[in-house]
Design a protein around this nucleic acid. Structure first.
Length: 645
DNA sequence: GCGATCAGCT
DNA sequence: CACAGCTGATCGC
């Protein structure tokens, strides 16, 4: 969940994804996507009244976000104040102070973020430099290199600061299987179930949030059917989604919801109550999309996990993995990175420290790595980039300083490491007191802001950061080592985590052809299988290395409590084999490659446009890049595809 | 009665 | 497997 407080240090007169408290005074608003945790205050009466008296304040978002927002009556009053912007179309906006008439010009460009329908990043270009606010996003490795508006000619634009969706910026979330790969696993499971009879139905146990439409459209396309959902209203102007969803319950794939859906399912009922017309009981499996990650050292192999006799979890992520974020950041090399999310179990300090490694002047900092500890501490205090006067309260109750400002902490950790841990790690609270006493000027500018609340929150956060114990610092060191290990030897690759399956049929050759032309973005999720194919399915209790055979024997012993589950719907001998549906996949691929994609781009936002002069980085190049970044070397980019240091 | 916040649940 | 949001209890205005 985003804890971004709404304003960016560089352009403090605009607010993004937060609409309460000090954001009430913004000259312009931006909404990256239509998820509630990015809409706080958006229906507040104070803001509503302000709009009625304003002639210039507007809310900027994508067309799809506008449509989804206005579909909810609680936000309908925004209609006359929303300005929908085309994707990838730089737009100049005048930021006017209505009291003084003072004006600032800024150029904003919306970039598709791949998080949910309508989701965008905002690229701001103005007097304070280029700033990228990512909102929530999922980019695959290499996607960033195909974003035309992050380039100027053949060079990467100079990005001052990135406000980053850091949901999975943690080595625990090292890898998450690609969208296409997860979709393949889900398709496989669905196919094997619904092909058994017309009474075999699938319930996609999706949460009440936008973002699963990608799953619906792809399954709808693949099985030439529609997915049952509660309402079509919000998609009424989005034909490419609308054509794959229905309110007609007579379909084999459901994504309907009900407060007691889980109970219903245990009683062999769908959330919508649908039954077969002839009275034959439906045979239901549930598939719950969940984020599964593959840690650096954990060897997992499956994107489908069986959690009960007829229950499955399927890998599905709206956010970039650690590795994908590193790819993104190492390509753009901003000077500053602010995390907008602190992963569960992490502290701000930890995340900040890890993000430091990805900042552009990391190489300059590396020069002092081997200085003695004492001298280093003085360096910290005199960090030229540490500007305590300019601190702002960018996050709820958090004093988020620029990542660059805290690089010295990283130096200390490296230093400790260099001393081979003979000296005890420097306690963080000594070298970096995360005090907030000089950071409240912004809040105090506004009467609406409740200072007491702020201080309470800040104290809590301060307390949290002070809890960073010696043990935790050591843990951070180990993680820093992990990063360097990954760079100095061979970084783990996708294939390392998954079994390579050699298939006898034509599927393999098609796959390798698809992979060989991966420098061109696929018009829609490509159906890559074959040599990259891992086990798509597993039972929860499987042994880690139980991946030698794609066949699956499902034991009835897994049956649990429910009456439905006592009757295991998967026979023991059911074989799930990717080769059995090769033909249908080939057809799908051919059909998709011939389709125009402009329509689907409008609301799916999962297609990254092609930049003619860029190409997808080769894994070897990435590997080299990571190695250099980790060792603090200057990164020289080949063929002018990236800006200079 | 409304909104904010939190625990609990998925 | 940890995202996003609902429900219900509680509190304050």
């Amino acid at each position: 969940m985003s804890s971004f407080a709404g304003r960016m240090k560089e352009y403090p007169t605009i607010s993004l994804d937060r609409f309460d408290r000090e954001n009430l005074h913004a000259r312009a608003y931006f909404l990256s996507h239509c998820h509630k945790d990015h809409m706080k205050g958006l229906k507040g009466p104070i803001l509503r009244r302000k709009l009625q008296f304003s002639r210039t304040v507007r809310l900027y978002c994508s067309f799809v976000t506008k449509e989804l927002l206005l579909n909810n009556p609680k936000y309908a009053f925004w209609e006359e104040y929303i300005v929908a912007l085309e994707l990838e179309s730089p737009t100049q906006i005048s930021l006017v102070d209505e009291a003084s008439g003072e004006k600032e010009e800024i150029v904003v460009t919306l970039l598709p973020a791949g998080h949910c329908p309508g989701s965008v990043m905002f690229l701001f270009e103005g007097s304070q430099g280029n700033v990228l606010y990512t909102g929530d996003f999922r980019f695959a490795a290499g996607d960033v290199s195909r974003m035309e508006h992050l380039h100027s000619g053949s060079r990467v634009k100079d990005i001052q600061t990135i406000y980053l969706d850091s949901t999975f910026y943690d080595p625990r979330f090292y890898q998450i299987p690609t969208r296409e790969f997860c979709l393949d696993g889900i398709s496989e499971l669905v196919r094997n179930w619904i092909s058994q009879s017309a009474y075999h139905v699938v319930w996609l146990n999706c949460k009440a949030a936008y973002g699963y439409e990608y799953l619906f459209t792809n399954l709808g396309e693949e099985f030439n059917t529609q997915i049952h959902v509660k309402s079509l209203e919000m998609f009424k102007k989005m034909p490419e989604i609308l054509s794959y969803v229905t309110t007609d319950r007579r379909t084999q794939i459901h994504a309907c919801r009900h407060p007691k859906a889980e109970e219903f399912f245990q009683g062999s009922r769908l959330p919508c109550g649908c039954t077969a017309s002839d009275g034959t009981p439906l045979r239901i499996i549930s598939i719950k999309p969940s984020t599964m990650w593959f840690g650096e050292r954990t060897r997992k192999t499956n994107v489908i996990i069986k959690t009960g006799a007829s229950s499955f979890r399927a890998c599905f992520s709206f956010h970039s993995s650690y590795l994908e974020l590193k790819d993104f950041l190492s390509y753009l090399q901003p000077f500053n990175i602010y995390p907008s999310v602190i992963p569960l179990g992490r502290t701000l300090t930890e995340v900040t420290q890890m993000l430091m490694l990805m900042c552009r002047n990391q190489t300059d900092q590396a020069a002092t790595v081997y200085k003695p500890l004492g001298a280093l501490k003085r360096c910290i205090v005199k960090q030229p980039t540490y500007d305590s006067d300019s601190d702002e309260k960018l996050f709820d109750g958090l004093d988020i300083a620029p990542v660059r400002k805290k690089m010295a902490l990283n130096q200390e950790i490296k230093n400790v490491k260099a001393l081979q841990e003979t000296a005890p790690p420097v306690p963080v609270e000594e070298s970096f007191p995360l005090t907030v006493t000089d950071t409240q000027s912004v809040s105090r500018n506004y009467a609406d802001c409740t200072e007491s609340n702020d201080e309470e929150e800040e104290e809590e956060e301060e307390e949290e950061d002070k809890k960073l114990s010696q043990d935790e610092v050591e843990m951070m060191i180990k993680e820093a080592e992990n990063i360097e290990v990954a760079g100095s030897s061979n970084p783990p690759k996708w294939e390392d985590f998954f079994t390579t399956e050699t298939l006898p049929d034509s599927q393999n050759s098609l796959s390798s052809q698809l992979q060989s032309c991966c420098s061109v973005p696929s018009p829609s999720p490509s159906k890559m299988t074959g040599s990259q194919t891992p086990d798509l399915f597993s039972e929860e209790e499987e042994t880690p290395d139980n991946d030698e055979n794609f066949s699956l024997t499902l034991s009835a012993s897994l049956s649990n409590h429910s009456s439905q589950n006592q009757d295991s719907y998967f026979p023991d001998t059911l074989i799930l084999h990717p080769g059995q549906h090769g033909d249908s996949r080939i057809n799908t691929q051919e059909k998709e490659s011939n389709e125009e994609l402009s329509a689907s781009q409008a609301s799916s936002d999962f297609d990254i446009p092609c930049t003619p002069e860029s190409k997808m980085p080769h894994p070897d190049e990435l590997s080299q890049l990571y190695r250099k970044l980790a060792s603090g070397e200057e990164v020289v980019i080949r063929k002018g595809s990236q800006g200079s240091m």
